[in-house]
């Protein structure tokens, strides 16, 4: 087991966590800053290029990157021995850096929950990947949009809390 906390393995896990996080938040920002604002400007006849081709592929990498980020991050915090103290916001050891990373971890966990249990099920309905009555589609699209916006909002303090811990 000591092999798993070898400094190089710890570094390697951090690298996997950061790469997964770039894939996840990069695609989240692509959806919010590029795809969603562009949809009204695309003629209806050309919209299937987004909804049938690009969005399903982007969503595939988006949701698996979210899961990968969470798993490597939790492994990392376990390797460094602060997983429980960080998840309890540093109150066990009165550590500001554990509180900081703990805030980031909780925001990340909430975001990953949104991806898998709100955004993805609703996007499947919107994109026609699962059967859904036409009248339910606007509600599903709205839920997916709000959860995606909420995640964009949380990505700002989440990344701050994650990175700021290294300042202390």
């Amino acid at each position: 087991m000591t092999f798993l906390t070898d400094p190089y393995i710890v570094f390697f896990v951090r690298w996997l966590h950061v790469m997964s996080g770039i894939m996840w938040i990069g695609l989240l920002w692509y959806f919010n800053f590029v795809q969603i604002p562009s949809m009204p400007k695309i003629p209806d006849a050309e919209k299937p290029a987004i909804t049938k081709v690009i969005a399903p592929t982007a969503l595939f990498w988006f949701r698996w990157a979210a899961l990968s980020t969470i798993i490597w991050g939790l492994i990392q915090s376990w390797q460094l021995g602060y997983i429980w103290d960080a998840l309890s916001l540093g109150f066990q050891t009165k550590s500001a850096s554990h509180m900081s990373i703990g805030f980031g971890m909780w925001m990340g966990l909430i975001m990953a929950f949104n991806v898998w249990f709100i955004i993805w099920p609703n996007q499947q309905k919107v994109l026609g990947l699962v059967a859904c009555p036409a009248e339910e589609k606007p509600k599903a699209a709205r839920m997916a949009l709000l959860a995606s916006r909420f995640n964009t909002m949380l990505s700002i303090p989440m990344s701050y809390a994650m990175v700021a811990v290294h300042l202390r």
Partner: peptide, 30 residues
Amino acid sequence: MNNPLQTLQGSIILGIVITVIVDLIVRYTF
């Protein structure tokens, strides 16, 4: 006026506000 979360600009501003609040909590708790 829509809920601020429905606009991208609103969610960015709220995100920055939450960042400052989180930073102040962490900075002055311990």
